[in-house]
Write a protein that binds this DNA or RNA. Sequence first.
DNA 1: GTTGTGACTACCA
DNA 2: ATGGTAGCCACAA
Length: 103
Amino acid sequence: MLNLELNELIWQVVAAIPYGRVLSYGQVAKSCGYPNHARYVGTTLKMLPEDTRLPWHRVVNAKGEISFPVNSEAYKRQISLLEKEGVIFKKGKLSFENYGVKY
DNA sequence: GTTGTGACTACCA
DNA sequence: ATGGTAGCCACAA
């Protein structure tokens, strides 16, 4: 495919998200230099193997919500991974305390 | 070329 | 706050 370069950038950015923090799809896209590719970030993460070590769960939508249908398997999987990292959810949304790549 | 679909967003009523 | 909408972009029919 044509965007292998972009895919690598995306993986790199996602891999760099520190433990316990999250980024939005839009932010990941922007970090790659493609501010309008938020959707494509999701498309890319979708094709990851199950045993990937990439912290894909640290990517949420701009509203701070999980971009999966509530109660779907993927939704529950992502929530549990995040909570395991100390990320706090209130009514399906997370607080901006966890947002961004601070050090 | 057109149309529809997504792990998206920003804007507006 | 909430729902609709119009951009957005890659991809598959």
